[in-house]
Nucleic acid binder design. Structure first.
Length: 477
DNA sequence: ATGTTC
């Protein structure tokens, strides 16, 4: 595979063999060795062979090996003549993050942090197999799947301003609960309002540095301010939707009429019955994830109000934004001067729409869409803004996080005998967790340096640094 | 990521 340097942060995988377009990798010399250590670049080249792919098979600097498609990949297919692939979305459909600001400053909150850590850990259902406070019957669950965050708001678990500050307003219209299997629906009944496990978290943090005061002001962020940051997805329901359609599409893979370089790239024509059905089911799982994050954030607010004996006005908790980073969406983009309907797959990649884009809510339209980039639990996270260059180069997309450099198994082996909890506490980070192996798997060194990842997307111009956040309390599954 | 091999 030939890697050609196009600019300091952008490399090309030359088009060869069955590739229909080149590969394009956003990275730096510092991040290159990690990138070449696994099969992720090969996966980028494999995706370039899929029918209907437009412009390039792209990878963000946080790329690492994933199911079929690498995590950190962006691939857009023609809506008429292209394919849709569950592996291009990921098992955790609409895995994403949301950030809320509060009116508190970290100096005054410091004495209460231990109490807050205990209360959040008690009050937020987390871990594999956990169940939430909201129990659904089948009929109600279908409403969640078709309405997303709007369902949560209609049950008093969110406000209109929350919907306004959520990507897609917290609901994909294409959702049709008929496309979701009985088994997937069943798994969703008891899991609404649960955090999950692995890299999912709920964090109390502080705005440590502001890079763009004007944009930060528009978003409502200032240095020293206390924030609430949440990372979760569609839980067992989304997993089951992905699993169901991988199996169904594999059975019908002959319909595609082409040989795939990797069986994990199984896909359907977007235009086919199967393709449309997957899109409708995926949208349901995406809506479930939005409702889930909406409920989790509402629950976190309740816990903070009670723990701090405060009224909502004093706490001043308000959603800044909610983004998804595992999704396929019908979007219109200009390709070679022509406006085209595309199915943009972002798997471990975040939408980063530019200032002025009609899909950016009115409050933020002047400065561009907020992009939320969580780091590992011991470092920091970033708030970025979408740019025009992202629209031109990456279908309005950027990175989604730090990206793994060690597998979970490798990480567990690497930290044997160490107390990760103590190491983090020494850095002023209180961690609460439930899984026996969670802290080892999520140890900071298992991830790339998120600051290096962000330098790439900022340097390449596909998003702009706005602010950096530092965690002080972390709750994990 | 995931009732971590229905």
């Amino acid at each position: 595979m030939r890697l050609i340097e196009k600019s300091p942060y952008c490399y090309e995988i030359a088009q060869e063999g069955n590739m229909r377009v080149p590969g394009r990798i956003y990275t730096s010399k510092a991040l290159m060795p990690g990138m070449e250590a696994d099969q992720s670049l090969k996966q980028v080249a494999n995706v370039a062979t899929l029918p209907g792919i437009v412009k390039a098979s792209m990878a963000m600097p946080d790329i690492h090996w994933g199911y079929g498609f690498s995590i950190g990949g962006v691939a857009a297919f023609d809506w008429q003549d292209g394919v849709i692939s569950p592996g291009g979305v990921g098992y955790d459909i609409n895995c994403g993050v949301r950030l809320a600001a509060t009116s508190l400053d970290m100096d005054s909150l410091q004495p209460y942090l231990d109490k807050i850590a205990d209360a959040l850990y008690q009050g937020i259902p987390c871990g594999v197999g956990s169940t939430g406070f909201v129990k659904l019957n089948q009929k109600e669950a279908k409403r969640v799947l078709e309405q997303g965050s709007r369902w949560a708001a209609s049950r008093g678990l969110g406000a209109d301003s929350d919907l306004e500050h959520t990507e897609e307003y917290g609901c994909m219209d294409a959702a049709d609960s008929e496309a979701v299997s009985e088994r997937a629906l069943q798994r969703g009944l008891k899991q609404l309002g649960t955090l999950g496990s692995g890299n999912h978290f709920l964090e109390i943090g502080v705005v440590e540095e502001v890079y763009e005061p004007e944009t930060a002001g528009v978003y409502g962020l200032a240095e020293g301010q206390v924030t609430v940051f949440l990372h979760s997805g569609s839980r067992g329901l989304g997993y089951q939707v992905c699993d169901d359609y991988l199996a169904r599409m594999t059975k019908k893979s002959k319909d595609l009429g082409i040989e795939l370089p990797d069986r994990q790239l199984v896909c359907s024509w977007i235009n086919s019955k199967m393709g449309k059905e997957y899109y409708s089911a995926m949208a349901c799982a995406a809506n479930y994830a939005w409702a889930n994050r909406q409920i989790l954030m509402h629950q976190a607010e309740e816990v903070l109000l009670k723990t701090l004996s405060m009224g909502p006005r004093d706490l001043g908790m308000r959603l800044i934004y909610d983004v998804c980073h595992n999704i396929a969406k019908k979007e219109t983009h200009v390709v070679d001067g022509v406006s085209r309907a595309l199915c943009v797959h972002r798997k471990g990649a975040t939408r980063a729409f530019a200032p002025g884009h009609p899909d950016v809510c009115s409050a933020y339209r002047k400065v561009g869409q907020p992009v939320l980039v969580p780091g590992d639990m011991g470092t920091c996270s970033y708030v970025l803004a979408g740019t025009e260059k992202a629209m031109e180069e990456t279908f309005g997309s950027t990175c989604h996080g730090a990206g793994r450099v060690m597998s979970r198994t490798q990480a567990k082996k690497a930290v044997k005998g160490r107390s990760i909890h103590r190491e983090l506490l020494d850095k002023g980070i209180r961690v609460k967790w439930t899984g026996r192996t969670t802290l080892a798997e999520e140890v900071p060194e298992a991830y790339k340096n998120v600051s290096e990842v962000v330098e790439v997307v900022h340097g390449a111009g596909i998003s702009q640094k706005v602010a950096r956040l530092r965690p002080v309390v972390v709750v994990k599954g």
